[in-house]
Design a protein around this nucleic acid. Structure first.
Lengths: 171, 171
DNA sequence: TGAAAATGTAACAGCACCTGTTACATTAGG
DNA sequence: CCTAATGTAACAGGTGCTGTTACATTTTCA
């Protein structure tokens, strides 16, 4: 799957989940993700059809999450965009003479592909958007403090983790 | 992954495993798989480098399995050809202004990708080449008998399953 | 009511990747 | 020495994805 659609979709959802109070538009998201607004509208259209986000047209409109991040699993996201995450199976044109084993092998390989797909979705359903959003926000907070010149020790002693965010300790 | 390389590789291994006594060449395999011999030589070269098959050049040469089918897992096969089976992650060029969350999100998504990859290999390691080869040979035997005009009942009563093959019952 | 801002889509271009193909060097057997 | 096989390099063709332009539609706000 040389398609980056699933990763881009996750990226959008993380940005939406991490800041649910701001207005997000395809243009503002595109600037942050270094791509074109239309690319994002295509992604958002899929999410909207599946009910994961709501959109509002017109001035002041934009995109927002339809549900709480903890109620969306990565498996659902994969379903929405029909992401494959397995492998492609070649097909064999009608042979000159029947090769039963080749036909049977292709059927067995396709069955194996479906099994792997099911197992992948199960694996992805164990993670929620909240999980991956918190992993990202925590890391972003840390990078922000480091960019401000704070040392590891200063961060360790002056900040604590609360709901996946680094917050300053007042004392 | 719109590449059919993994499925083709499995296909080759199934054909080799199902008939280890015959000589298989890139040309004979290509005819059965409806593709070009060079495509198969590329696949075979990878398998050979990884030690899964042995090749012999020259007249009378060809390809054969290096190990027993029960000692080869589908996970090994995926490793050999560095099959991905996850998703691609987009990359963001150096931004005009730093977006810590976007950078952190990409890191989190990449971590998630590696987790899924590891889980997929674990899943694939549960299946051996023998397993999928037997699934294919059994189905091929059945299709062959049906093509010969036997009914389901005749097959049920006249044949039994032995080591993944349908064999006639002598009575 | 009109301008501005946003989504929703269609159409197309460019690029990258994959498969198939030709060609040829190398190796081995009879 | 001829034949048959692997091992590779080089290139062609197709396919699919991303990016882009363009425009219709919807909505808000002054």
């Amino acid at each position: 799957m040389p398609s980056t659609q699933y990763a881009s979709t996750l990226h959008v959802l993380i940005l939406l989940a991490a800041d649910q109070d701001s207005v997000h538009t395809s243009t503002s998201l595109a600037a942050r993700m270094d791509t074109n607004p239309v690319v994002l509208r295509r992604i958002i259209a899929d999410l909207s059809k599946a009910g994961l986000v709501t959109t509002r047209r017109g001035a002041g409109g934009g995109v927002s999450l339809a549900n709480n991040p903890e109620d969306i699993t990565l498996g659902q996201v994969a379903d929405v965009i029909e992401a494959d995450m397995t492998f492609d199976v070649h097909h064999v044109s009608d042979q000159t003479e029947a090769d039963f084993l080749t036909d049977a092998a292709l059927t067995a390989i396709e069955a194996q592909r479906r099994e792997l797909h099911a197992a992948s979705i199960v694996e992805l359903d164990r993670i929620t958007l909240r999980d991956i959003m918190q992993a990202a926000t925590l890391r972003a907070d840390l990078a922000r403090l480091l960019a401000d010149g704070l040392s590891d020790d200063q961060i360790r002693n002056g900040y604590r983790i609360e709901k996946g965010r680094l917050v300053a300790i007042d004392d």
